[in-house]
Amino acid sequence: MSMLELHGVSRSFGGLAAVDNVTTTFEPGRIVGLIGPNGAGKTTLVNLITGVIPLSSGKVSFNGQSLNRIKPYHAAHLGMARTFQIVQPFNQMDVVDNVAAALLFSQGGHSPASARAAALPIIERVGLTPSAHKSAAALTLAMRKRLELAKAIAIRPKIVFLDEVNAGLNSAEIDQASRLIRELADEGITIVLIEHLMKVVMSICSRVIVLQQGRLIADGSPQDIARDPAVIEAYLGKKYLDKRHGQ
């Protein structure tokens, strides 16, 4: 039995099949890249798994438990975390309270005060300590992405969906984020990385799955995926192919 299993997961909006009959599994402690062109259904797939929107059809189970009709807060209690592609900080709170909220409501045994204390090491880990007492609204985009990551870590997840956490970051910031993602995987957390930057996908993922128009069109090692003609055509485009041959 895998940690997370999807069977024929589908969702349509009106006539549009945003996610179309996706069947796959996720194993503990691995970094899985989830790639595909814009509008392929990546974010929608995460929304389906975490209960943000209901499935049109199909089945999702997590450690053997069915997640159909689950609510997002319940997904969090089961150990699923996600960051939002469009960051959603609690803008009127400081960084500490943002992370403390995640600690307080995802697991028992905390008071607001103890959650604030426990938030500090997590904030340190994502490198936000100098801004710990700034309001989230005052952070730069790069910092808000790190805050999303800190909140995801704070719920002590078994699996984390990272929806383009590197978009808009510079290369030093991306290296930093990649290192942190590797560390989390080493701790046994499954990472599902939605990412447009192929460099990042190639360097940290052990497996890559590819969506196109809602369908899962490829699943394999980064090297296999990079060679797969269907993927190259659908997603990477001819330019990437030319560049690879030119190297």
Partner: peptide, 10 residues
């Protein structure tokens, strides 16, 4: 402040 994010942290 952010209902979707609130759900997502439990």
């Amino acid at each position: 402040q952010a209902e979707g994010a609130a759900e997502m942290i439990g």
